[in-house]
Write a protein that binds this DNA or RNA. Structure first.
Lengths: 300, 300
DNA sequence: CAAGACCGGTGAGTAAAATTCACTCATGCG
DNA sequence: CGCATGAGTGAATTTTACTCACCGGTCTTG
């Protein structure tokens, strides 16, 4: 009998986000779901209340005054619950969190974004550790690890998918023209990476494109390969995530774009830390910052 | 990043009810789910918070102080949301609600409970209408109807299951001895009911018991049949719900108990009234009052 | 002014979550 | 001791949430 008008609680988060953004699509992005999911939850809520909550225009969504008011109440109510939950949650150990990550992703993606991390999640201190392959949380004293799912993850690790791997050839802008020119393509040097020697083969298999190199060269890590590519040594094959900043700066170009190779990067964590607020905030930040990398429209 | 400690919202209602009752089983009863469902939601919540919320003793559950506090916050937060939702929900038309119901269930079950209804749901005025069979909300100006699912319900009606039909023979206490006595059983008069002529056959089929009556008699409605049984005319077959009060008063006894016949009673409503607060409150009251009728332990 | 991007709605299919069912265990009670 | 009661749980099932792929509008842009 109590709370007879209470709407389905699962509709509240999508609703609140939608009102805040005045957009279902934006809310969906924030919540890491599709716009369809938000659309349906809004419909649930409206059906439950028996009222429409938005004025639907074609490109814009206008929350009604009642919707704004309800959203404000919801925000407030959730704030209270969140605060209460925080108080109850076991005090997190104050020490820094150790995050393990592939060397190149670390150097070319994560480190340049540390200032943003420090700004957005000021209460979390992160220790960075370069590493790949199997994760041993206890042995290596690691709290979180970013890994590509090209090997089986520990059974009990918590995992959050971050973004799909997409690879593509990159080179100095002035070399790009040669690649599409049959005569020039055969005079190009292919740059291989020691830690992922099959990358070129993968790319050829996926795209069906051929590459008949004049010569080949292998460097241990992607950051070295990219360095060589930027120096004009040849054409490297690289993950989009690590090449991204160089592409934006114009130091490298990707004449063939990038294609998914079927693998994805995940954030792995100790199951016991799943409800640690710092872990949650760091996870949220990583998800937010990597969601663009997972976006096909960013295929360049 | 906001609300990083927010627990799954669906766990809040079971949690709040469990704290209030200091019992999962009681909370489950209130929410009309099994205790297992509550148990699992509590586990979800505890996992999400990373803390235990109850001290588990064998027969009793003690909410921790933190749990009490969280429950209080949750109550408060849900109150706010409920109030806001109420304000937004379209003003319900003020008129009385018309409830249609089988004549006997109306006379022998609902009418005796009207004082309780008036006490618990004071803001709802109910018009009662005796009727059975197909429901025509519009034509008959009916808002809600209680019906047994022995015929197809309207496609678009909202429906809430209330309780399982259970039938059994009833008679005056002094006649009961005869029924189990082979010689006496054949001298008994079977009382049939016009609106459900196959009830005795159903019962024989379900129980496998035989009844070789000296004579038979048919009366139109169950309330007449029960009246005759109470007068000692013979043995009636009746739904538990309508015989219940007479059994408790000792006017009738049910020497063979009651058995489910596979059908159930449902509350049907106009889909447009589903979010009407008065309909919700009336539905909640009916569910609460009929849940005992649905309880196998009440098989007498 | 057509081509494409963007937004929200939606049918169908799928994944995930909630719930039930049918048990177990532990224990207090007559 | 046998029974009743309340909670936990593995497996199955049902319900709900979500995704995917598409549609129809409309605003933008070359």
């Amino acid at each position: 009998m109590r709370w007879s008008a209470l709407p389905p609680l699962n509709t509240l988060l999508p609703f609140e986000a939608t009102v805040r953004h005045a957009s279902m699509t934006a809310a969906a992005r924030e919540l890491h779901v599709t716009h369809g999911a938000v659309s349906r939850q809004i419909q649930n809520l409206e059906r439950s209340l028996g009222t429409s909550l938005f004025e639907r225009r074609t490109r814009a969504l206008h929350p009604t005054p009642q919707a704004r008011q309800l959203a404000a109440v919801v925000r407030d109510a959730l704030d209270q619950i969140d605060a209460a939950a925080r108080q109850i949650a076991p005090r997190a150990p104050a020490g820094p969190l150790t995050l393990s990550c592939e060397p190149t992703l670390l150097m070319r993606w994560l480190i340049p974004r540390l200032p943003d991390l420090a700004a957005k999640v000021p209460d979390v201190t992160v220790h960075l550790s370069a590493g790949g392959g199997p994760v041993f949380f206890e042995r290596d004293d690691i709290d979180l690890a970013i890994r590509r799912d090209d090997f089986p993850f520990p059974e009990d690790a918590s995992r959050t998918r971050l973004f799909a791997e997409r690879i593509g050839p990159v080179c100095r802008p002035d070399l790009a023209a040669r690649l599409t020119d049959a005569a020039g393509a055969s005079q190009v040097t292919l740059l291989h990476t020691g830690t992922r020697p099959q990358a070129w083969d993968d790319w050829r298999r996926i795209t069906g494109l051929r590459a008949e190199p004049a010569s080949q060269q292998t460097l241990e890590h992607f950051y070295l390969t990219l360095q060589a590519a930027a120096a004009g040594v040849g054409v490297a094959i690289a993950p989009y995530a690590v090449a991204r900043d160089d592409l934006e700066r114009g130091q490298l170009v990707a004449p063939f774009g990038f294609v998914p190779d079927g693998t994805s990067y995940h954030l792995l964590g100790r199951p016991s830390h799943e409800q640690d607020g710092r872990v949650r905030r760091l996870t949220a930040w990583l998800r937010a910052r990597t969601s663009r990398l997972d976006d096909d429209s960013e295929q360049v």
